[in-house]
Design a binder for these strands. Structure first.
Ligand SMILES: [Mn+2]
Ligand SMILES: [Mn+2]
Ligand SMILES: [Zn+2]
Ligand SMILES: [Zn+2]
Lengths: 146, 146
DNA sequence: TGATTTAATAATAATTATTATTATTTAGTA
DNA sequence: TACTAAATAATAATAATTATTATTAAATCA
Protein backbone atom coordinates (compact mmCIF):
# COMPACT_ATOMS: atom_id res chain seq x y z
CA UNK A 1 0.00 0.00 0.00
CA UNK A 2 1.17 3.48 -0.92
CA UNK A 3 3.13 5.29 1.75
CA UNK A 4 1.49 8.56 0.89
CA UNK A 5 -1.97 7.13 1.52
CA UNK A 6 -0.81 5.79 4.87
CA UNK A 7 0.72 9.02 6.09
CA UNK A 8 -2.33 10.96 4.89
CA UNK A 9 -4.65 8.64 6.77
CA UNK A 10 -2.67 9.06 10.00
CA UNK A 11 -2.38 12.82 9.54
CA UNK A 12 -6.10 13.10 8.81
CA UNK A 13 -6.75 12.16 12.44
CA UNK A 14 -4.43 14.88 13.70
CA UNK A 15 -1.80 12.35 14.75
CA UNK A 16 1.93 12.85 14.41
CA UNK A 17 3.56 10.87 11.64
CA UNK A 18 6.06 8.53 13.19
CA UNK A 19 7.89 5.61 11.73
CA UNK A 20 6.25 3.27 14.27
CA UNK A 21 2.75 4.40 13.36
CA UNK A 22 3.46 3.99 9.68
CA UNK A 23 4.75 0.44 9.98
CA UNK A 24 1.99 -0.66 12.35
CA UNK A 25 -0.73 0.70 10.10
CA UNK A 26 1.01 -0.69 7.02
CA UNK A 27 1.22 -4.17 8.55
CA UNK A 28 -2.42 -4.10 9.55
CA UNK A 29 -3.52 -2.95 6.10
CA UNK A 30 -1.50 -5.73 4.50
CA UNK A 31 -2.95 -8.48 6.67
CA UNK A 32 -6.13 -10.28 5.79
CA UNK A 33 -6.49 -12.37 8.96
CA UNK A 34 -7.17 -9.61 11.54
CA UNK A 35 -3.94 -10.06 13.47
CA UNK A 36 -3.26 -9.77 17.19
CA UNK A 37 -0.99 -7.00 18.50
CA UNK A 38 1.72 -9.61 18.94
CA UNK A 39 1.41 -10.88 15.37
CA UNK A 40 1.85 -7.33 14.10
CA UNK A 41 4.82 -6.89 16.42
CA UNK A 42 6.46 -10.13 15.27
CA UNK A 43 6.09 -9.13 11.67
CA UNK A 44 7.35 -5.56 11.86
CA UNK A 45 10.23 -6.16 14.25
CA UNK A 46 12.09 -7.99 11.50
CA UNK A 47 12.63 -4.72 9.67
CA UNK A 48 12.31 -2.60 12.82
CA UNK A 49 14.18 -4.44 15.57
CA UNK A 50 14.06 -1.47 17.97
CA UNK A 51 10.29 -1.31 18.18
CA UNK A 52 8.63 -2.18 21.46
CA UNK A 53 5.59 -4.44 21.87
CA UNK A 54 4.07 -1.86 24.21
CA UNK A 55 4.37 0.69 21.44
CA UNK A 56 2.45 -1.59 19.11
CA UNK A 57 -0.34 -1.94 21.69
CA UNK A 58 -0.36 1.80 22.35
CA UNK A 59 -0.30 2.68 18.67
CA UNK A 60 -3.18 0.34 17.93
CA UNK A 61 -5.17 1.81 20.83
CA UNK A 62 -4.51 5.32 19.55
CA UNK A 63 -5.72 4.30 16.10
CA UNK A 64 -8.87 2.77 17.60
CA UNK A 65 -9.61 5.91 19.62
CA UNK A 66 -9.21 7.96 16.48
CA UNK A 67 -11.37 5.59 14.47
CA UNK A 68 -8.67 4.77 11.98
CA UNK A 69 -8.98 1.06 12.76
CA UNK A 70 -11.27 -1.26 14.75
CA UNK A 71 -10.95 -3.85 17.45
CA UNK A 72 -12.42 -7.27 16.82
CA UNK A 73 -13.01 -9.57 19.79
CA UNK A 74 -12.26 -13.21 19.08
CA UNK A 75 -13.69 -16.42 20.55
CA UNK A 76 -10.41 -17.34 22.21
CA UNK A 77 -10.32 -14.08 24.14
CA UNK A 78 -7.39 -12.27 22.55
CA UNK A 79 -8.08 -9.04 20.77
CA UNK A 80 -7.75 -8.71 17.01
CA UNK A 81 -7.40 -5.60 14.89
CA UNK A 82 -9.00 -4.54 11.64
CA UNK A 83 -7.83 -1.83 9.25
CA UNK A 84 -11.30 -1.57 7.77
CA UNK A 85 -13.82 0.84 9.20
CA UNK A 86 -16.60 0.44 6.67
CA UNK A 87 -19.52 -1.90 7.31
CA UNK A 88 -18.71 -5.57 6.88
CA UNK A 89 -19.07 -8.90 8.65
CA UNK A 90 -16.58 -11.48 9.85
CA UNK A 91 -16.04 -15.20 9.54
CA UNK A 92 -14.08 -16.79 12.35
CA UNK A 93 -12.25 -19.85 11.09
CA UNK A 94 -11.80 -22.11 14.09
CA UNK A 95 -9.17 -24.48 12.70
CA UNK A 96 -6.77 -21.72 11.66
CA UNK A 97 -7.81 -19.01 14.13
CA UNK A 98 -8.08 -16.55 11.24
CA UNK A 99 -10.78 -13.92 11.03
CA UNK A 100 -11.79 -13.18 7.46
CA UNK A 101 -13.91 -10.37 6.08
CA UNK A 102 -17.30 -11.14 4.68
CA UNK A 103 -18.90 -8.48 2.52
CA UNK A 104 -22.37 -8.44 1.11
CA UNK A 105 -24.63 -5.46 0.49
CA UNK A 106 -27.64 -7.75 0.38
CA UNK A 107 -26.93 -9.04 3.88
CA UNK A 108 -26.65 -5.52 5.24
CA UNK A 109 -30.00 -4.67 3.67
CA UNK A 110 -31.63 -7.78 5.08
CA UNK A 111 -30.36 -7.03 8.58
CA UNK A 112 -31.18 -3.32 8.46
CA UNK A 113 -34.68 -4.15 7.29
CA UNK A 114 -35.13 -6.75 9.96
CA UNK A 115 -33.94 -4.51 12.78
CA UNK A 116 -36.01 -1.56 11.58
CA UNK A 117 -39.11 -3.74 11.69
CA UNK A 118 -38.48 -5.00 15.23
CA UNK A 119 -39.06 -3.09 18.42
CA UNK A 120 -36.20 -2.70 20.90
CA UNK A 121 -37.54 -1.00 23.98
CA UNK A 122 -35.20 1.35 25.79
CA UNK A 123 -32.33 0.29 23.58
CA UNK A 124 -30.38 2.39 21.11
CA UNK A 125 -28.75 0.06 18.59
CA UNK A 126 -25.25 1.20 17.68
CA UNK A 127 -23.99 -1.77 15.70
CA UNK A 128 -24.96 -5.14 14.31
CA UNK A 129 -22.96 -7.87 12.64
CA UNK A 130 -23.50 -11.38 11.43
CA UNK A 131 -20.86 -13.51 13.07
CA UNK A 132 -20.18 -16.60 11.05
CA UNK A 133 -18.08 -19.39 12.46
CA UNK A 134 -16.68 -22.19 10.35
CA UNK A 135 -13.77 -24.39 9.47
CA UNK A 136 -11.61 -24.29 6.40
CA UNK A 137 -11.79 -27.43 4.34
CA UNK A 138 -8.93 -28.85 2.36
CA UNK A 139 -10.89 -29.71 -0.81
CA UNK A 140 -8.75 -32.79 -1.40
CA UNK A 141 -8.54 -34.36 2.04
CA UNK A 142 -11.56 -32.92 3.88
CA UNK A 143 -11.05 -30.85 7.00
CA UNK A 144 -7.38 -31.21 7.91
CA UNK A 145 -5.99 -27.69 7.83
CA UNK A 146 -4.05 -26.76 10.99
CA UNK B 1 -34.48 -23.52 39.43
CA UNK B 2 -35.21 -27.04 40.67
CA UNK B 3 -32.27 -28.85 42.22
CA UNK B 4 -33.34 -32.12 40.68
CA UNK B 5 -33.21 -30.64 37.18
CA UNK B 6 -29.74 -29.29 37.89
CA UNK B 7 -28.33 -32.55 39.19
CA UNK B 8 -29.90 -34.45 36.31
CA UNK B 9 -28.36 -32.07 33.79
CA UNK B 10 -24.91 -32.52 35.29
CA UNK B 11 -25.32 -36.28 35.58
CA UNK B 12 -26.55 -36.51 31.98
CA UNK B 13 -23.05 -35.53 30.85
CA UNK B 14 -21.47 -38.27 32.91
CA UNK B 15 -20.08 -35.79 35.40
CA UNK B 16 -19.92 -36.37 39.14
CA UNK B 17 -22.44 -34.44 41.16
CA UNK B 18 -20.56 -32.13 43.48
CA UNK B 19 -21.75 -29.22 45.53
CA UNK B 20 -19.45 -26.86 43.62
CA UNK B 21 -20.84 -27.92 40.25
CA UNK B 22 -24.38 -27.54 41.48
CA UNK B 23 -23.91 -24.00 42.77
CA UNK B 24 -21.94 -22.84 39.73
CA UNK B 25 -24.56 -24.16 37.33
CA UNK B 26 -27.35 -22.82 39.51
CA UNK B 27 -25.82 -19.34 39.57
CA UNK B 28 -25.33 -19.34 35.81
CA UNK B 29 -28.90 -20.47 35.19
CA UNK B 30 -30.19 -17.73 37.46
CA UNK B 31 -28.25 -14.96 35.75
CA UNK B 32 -29.58 -13.10 32.76
CA UNK B 33 -26.48 -11.00 31.99
CA UNK B 34 -24.03 -13.72 30.91
CA UNK B 35 -21.67 -13.33 33.86
CA UNK B 36 -17.88 -13.62 34.01
CA UNK B 37 -16.27 -16.42 36.04
CA UNK B 38 -15.48 -13.88 38.71
CA UNK B 39 -19.06 -12.60 38.91
CA UNK B 40 -20.25 -16.15 39.45
CA UNK B 41 -17.55 -16.64 42.07
CA UNK B 42 -18.45 -13.44 43.92
CA UNK B 43 -22.09 -14.44 44.02
CA UNK B 44 -21.71 -18.03 45.18
CA UNK B 45 -18.95 -17.47 47.72
CA UNK B 46 -21.42 -15.68 49.98
CA UNK B 47 -23.15 -18.96 50.71
CA UNK B 48 -20.06 -21.07 49.91
CA UNK B 49 -17.08 -19.24 51.41
CA UNK B 50 -14.73 -22.21 50.93
CA UNK B 51 -15.06 -22.31 47.15
CA UNK B 52 -12.03 -21.39 45.05
CA UNK B 53 -12.03 -19.09 42.03
CA UNK B 54 -9.92 -21.64 40.17
CA UNK B 55 -12.62 -24.21 40.81
CA UNK B 56 -15.18 -21.89 39.26
CA UNK B 57 -13.00 -21.52 36.16
CA UNK B 58 -12.35 -25.25 36.00
CA UNK B 59 -16.00 -26.13 36.54
CA UNK B 60 -17.13 -23.74 33.81
CA UNK B 61 -14.53 -25.16 31.42
CA UNK B 62 -15.71 -28.69 32.21
CA UNK B 63 -19.29 -27.66 31.49
CA UNK B 64 -18.23 -26.07 28.19
CA UNK B 65 -16.33 -29.19 27.13
CA UNK B 66 -19.39 -31.27 27.94
CA UNK B 67 -21.70 -28.86 26.12
CA UNK B 68 -23.77 -28.10 29.16
CA UNK B 69 -23.07 -24.38 28.80
CA UNK B 70 -21.42 -22.02 26.30
CA UNK B 71 -18.69 -19.42 26.28
CA UNK B 72 -19.54 -15.99 24.95
CA UNK B 73 -16.68 -13.67 23.99
CA UNK B 74 -17.26 -10.04 24.87
CA UNK B 75 -15.98 -6.82 23.27
CA UNK B 76 -13.90 -5.93 26.33
CA UNK B 77 -11.97 -9.19 26.13
CA UNK B 78 -13.14 -11.05 29.24
CA UNK B 79 -15.01 -14.29 28.73
CA UNK B 80 -18.68 -14.62 29.58
CA UNK B 81 -20.74 -17.73 30.17
CA UNK B 82 -24.19 -18.78 29.02
CA UNK B 83 -26.38 -21.51 30.48
CA UNK B 84 -28.36 -21.73 27.26
CA UNK B 85 -27.27 -24.10 24.52
CA UNK B 86 -30.20 -23.68 22.15
CA UNK B 87 -29.98 -21.30 19.22
CA UNK B 88 -30.28 -17.64 20.10
CA UNK B 89 -28.56 -14.33 19.54
CA UNK B 90 -27.01 -11.74 21.86
CA UNK B 91 -27.24 -8.05 22.48
CA UNK B 92 -24.18 -6.48 24.05
CA UNK B 93 -25.16 -3.44 26.06
CA UNK B 94 -22.13 -1.19 26.11
CA UNK B 95 -23.13 1.16 28.93
CA UNK B 96 -23.84 -1.61 31.43
CA UNK B 97 -21.53 -4.31 30.04
CA UNK B 98 -24.44 -6.77 30.15
CA UNK B 99 -25.02 -9.38 27.48
CA UNK B 100 -28.71 -10.12 26.96
CA UNK B 101 -30.36 -12.89 25.02
CA UNK B 102 -32.24 -12.09 21.87
CA UNK B 103 -34.62 -14.72 20.59
CA UNK B 104 -36.51 -14.73 17.33
CA UNK B 105 -37.44 -17.68 15.17
CA UNK B 106 -37.98 -15.38 12.21
CA UNK B 107 -34.40 -14.11 12.45
CA UNK B 108 -33.04 -17.64 12.51
CA UNK B 109 -35.07 -18.46 9.40
CA UNK B 110 -33.88 -15.34 7.60
CA UNK B 111 -30.24 -16.12 8.36
CA UNK B 112 -30.50 -19.82 7.55
CA UNK B 113 -32.14 -18.96 4.26
CA UNK B 114 -29.54 -16.38 3.46
CA UNK B 115 -26.60 -18.63 4.24
CA UNK B 116 -28.09 -21.57 2.33
CA UNK B 117 -28.40 -19.37 -0.74
CA UNK B 118 -24.80 -18.15 -0.61
CA UNK B 119 -21.73 -20.10 -1.61
CA UNK B 120 -18.90 -20.52 0.88
CA UNK B 121 -16.05 -22.24 -0.88
CA UNK B 122 -13.95 -24.62 1.18
CA UNK B 123 -15.75 -23.54 4.34
CA UNK B 124 -17.92 -25.63 6.60
CA UNK B 125 -20.17 -23.26 8.55
CA UNK B 126 -20.57 -24.42 12.14
CA UNK B 127 -22.37 -21.45 13.67
CA UNK B 128 -23.84 -18.05 12.91
CA UNK B 129 -25.18 -15.32 15.14
CA UNK B 130 -26.44 -11.82 14.81
CA UNK B 131 -24.41 -9.72 17.22
CA UNK B 132 -26.31 -6.62 18.19
CA UNK B 133 -24.62 -3.85 20.10
CA UNK B 134 -26.53 -1.07 21.80
CA UNK B 135 -26.97 1.13 24.82
CA UNK B 136 -29.71 1.00 27.37
CA UNK B 137 -31.78 4.15 27.50
CA UNK B 138 -33.35 5.54 30.62
CA UNK B 139 -36.78 6.40 29.13
CA UNK B 140 -37.06 9.49 31.34
CA UNK B 141 -33.62 11.04 31.07
CA UNK B 142 -32.21 9.63 27.82
CA UNK B 143 -29.01 7.57 27.89
CA UNK B 144 -27.60 7.89 31.40
CA UNK B 145 -27.51 4.38 32.76
CA UNK B 146 -24.10 3.42 34.22
C1' DT C 1 -20.98 -50.70 55.48
C1' DG C 2 -16.22 -49.66 55.10
C1' DA C 3 -12.23 -49.75 52.17
C1' DT C 4 -10.52 -48.58 47.74
C1' DT C 5 -10.09 -46.09 43.68
C1' DT C 6 -10.55 -42.22 40.95
C1' DA C 7 -11.80 -37.72 40.16
C1' DA C 8 -12.59 -33.03 42.04
C1' DT C 9 -11.22 -29.25 44.86
C1' DA C 10 -8.47 -25.63 47.40
C1' DA C 11 -4.59 -23.20 47.56
C1' DT C 12 -1.43 -21.16 45.15
C1' DA C 13 2.10 -20.59 41.52
C1' DA C 14 2.69 -19.60 36.78
C1' DT C 15 1.49 -17.79 32.38
C1' DT C 16 -0.57 -14.80 28.99
C1' DA C 17 -2.43 -10.64 27.44
C1' DT C 18 -2.61 -6.05 28.26
C1' DT C 19 -1.88 -1.55 30.55
C1' DA C 20 0.87 1.76 33.35
C1' DT C 21 5.10 4.24 34.44
C1' DT C 22 8.97 6.92 33.45
C1' DA C 23 13.23 8.37 31.39
C1' DT C 24 14.59 9.34 26.77
C1' DT C 25 13.84 10.62 22.10
C1' DT C 26 11.53 12.75 18.29
C1' DA C 27 8.07 15.36 15.32
C1' DG C 28 6.12 19.49 14.45
C1' DT C 29 6.62 24.22 14.74
C1' DA C 30 8.43 29.04 15.81
C1' DT D 1 18.04 25.56 14.62
C1' DA D 2 15.80 25.54 19.11
C1' DC D 3 11.72 24.60 21.70
C1' DT D 4 7.99 22.01 23.40
C1' DA D 5 4.60 18.66 23.46
C1' DA D 6 3.95 14.20 22.28
C1' DA D 7 5.66 9.54 21.29
C1' DT D 8 8.64 5.74 22.28
C1' DA D 9 11.49 2.05 24.64
C1' DA D 10 12.15 -0.38 28.47
C1' DT D 11 10.18 -2.36 31.94
C1' DA D 12 7.03 -2.89 35.88
C1' DA D 13 2.40 -3.83 37.08
C1' DT D 14 -2.11 -5.70 36.60
C1' DA D 15 -5.96 -8.64 35.09
C1' DA D 16 -7.57 -12.84 33.42
C1' DT D 17 -6.81 -17.40 33.04
C1' DT D 18 -4.39 -21.86 33.39
C1' DA D 19 -1.25 -25.19 35.70
C1' DT D 20 0.38 -27.70 39.70
C1' DT D 21 -0.09 -30.45 43.59
C1' DA D 22 -1.50 -31.91 48.09
C1' DT D 23 -5.88 -32.80 50.07
C1' DT D 24 -10.61 -34.18 50.00
C1' DA D 25 -14.76 -36.32 48.44
C1' DA D 26 -17.67 -39.19 45.27
C1' DA D 27 -18.48 -43.47 43.28
C1' DT D 28 -17.44 -48.28 43.13
C1' DC D 29 -16.85 -52.52 45.19
C1' DA D 30 -15.39 -56.31 48.74
MN1 LIG E 1 -6.35 -8.92 30.04
MN1 LIG F 1 -5.90 -14.62 28.95
ZN1 LIG G 1 -12.73 -6.91 9.01
ZN1 LIG H 1 -27.33 -16.36 25.74
Amino acid sequence: MNLEIITKAIASKGLKITHQRIVVYQALLASVIHPTAEQIYDQIKESNPAISLATVYKTLETFVENRLINKVPSPNGTMRYDARTDYHNHIYISNTNEIMDYDDIELKEILLNYLKKKQFENLNITDFKLQIKGEKIDPIKGITIS
